[in-house]
Design a protein around this nucleic acid. Structure first.
Length: 292
DNA sequence: AATGTTTTCAACCGCACAGGA
DNA sequence: ATCCTGTGCGGTTGAAAACAT
């Protein structure tokens, strides 16, 4: 049920993710967090646009993401929340631990909405009402109907806030971002299940020439960045325009002045301007920036 | 067993918004 | 005040899987 892999005009892969890509992305984010989605794929060694990486992480790789059928309780909650919030899938997802907005959206359209459509059609047959509207229009109307039907339903404020992610690392360059339980428990379970031991530096996939940030390229970045010209192509998610990157290209997200905040339920390391280091601590192991 | 149809859901796309320069 | 960039969201797509004939 996934799109076959393909490569766009910018050399970016599209379509289904391979296990190798998943492992690279997961390993990188587990270690460093997602400090900049646009630049992240380069450092992580995946030929994907940042937007694709974010989506893959958020909807599939992120620890704690539940897969499989929705329980009756979850379904009821979705119905109730949709009545309150409408198509605010991310807001609904925030109340269902482990469920993503994409998954809930799909669930709504393929199960709940369809079931109601059928029920609606059946009740119309019984009451003798006919409807000449096209099926798609019917669908849209149904959504409005179902929305208004339960609009008055009052629900208890669900205290099921999605747990947030801890960035787990033992790299001294990375400030650990820790969250209170129950985060640790499910994250530990996840780590135990994964093929890599992400807390072990020796096992982390090493830099390689063909899939990571190259030394020469780093020099080029730095040179052009300092001169104020744009080097990177494809700053948009889709990678199909040529806007120049803004700021922080050489910021060190792992430095002493790193701060963190939370966005969409995960720890988010905010880069701070700090000339003298690359965005990737690995690069710093290989050469002395002061000599450049 | 072969073929056609429907269902499912991962992934794509474009837009809007926040925040920094 | 304006522009630019990064990010997140919601709608849509499309191919595999499941089901029906």
């Amino acid at each position: 049920m996934v799109r076959p892999p393909s490569v766009d005009s910018n050399g970016m892969k599209k379509g289904a993710w391979s296990e190798e890509e998943d492992n690279k992305l997961r390993a990188y984010i587990q270690r460093y967090g997602h400090w900049n989605w646009r630049l992240l794929p380069k450092y992580a060694g995946v030929s994907r646009c940042g937007k694709s990486c974010r989506l893959r992480w958020v909807n599939y790789l992120r620890p704690g993401v539940k897969r499989g059928n929705f329980s009756k309780q979850e379904e009821d909650l979705i119905v109730q929340l949709h009545a309150q919030l409408g198509n605010k899938w991310s807001a609904i997802a925030a109340k269902l631990p482990g469920r993503t907005d994409n998954e809930i959206k799909n669930f709504w359209h393929t199960r709940i909405e369809k079931r109601r459509y059928k029920q609606n059609q059946e009740s119309k047959k019984i009451t003798g009402h006919t409807n000449e509207a096209s099926s798609s229009k019917d669908h849209q109307m149904l959504e409005k109907e179902t929305h208004s039907e339960i609009e008055t339903t009052q629900i208890e404020s669900a205290s099921l806030d999605r747990p947030t992610l801890s960035v787990v690392t033992n790299n001294p360059l990375v400030l650990p971002v820790t969250e209170p339980n129950p985060v640790d428990s499910w994250l530990d379970s996840f780590l135990a299940d994964t093929p890599y031991n992400y807390q072990n530096d020796d096992i982390f996939p090493p830099l390689s020439e063909d899939n990571n940030f190259l030394y020469s390229e780093a020099l080029q970045y730095r040179e052009l960045s300092n001169s104020g010209s744009s080097y990177l192509s494809g700053s948009d998610w889709t990678g199909d325009d040529n806007q120049s990157p803004q700021g922080n290209l050489w910021g060190n997200p792992f430095g002493s002045n790193t701060s963190s905040s939370h966005q969409s339920g995960s720890s988010y390391i905010q880069p701070q301007d700090q000339v003298g280091a690359s965005c990737d601590p690995f690069i710093d192991q290989y050469f002395d920036w002061n000599e450049l």
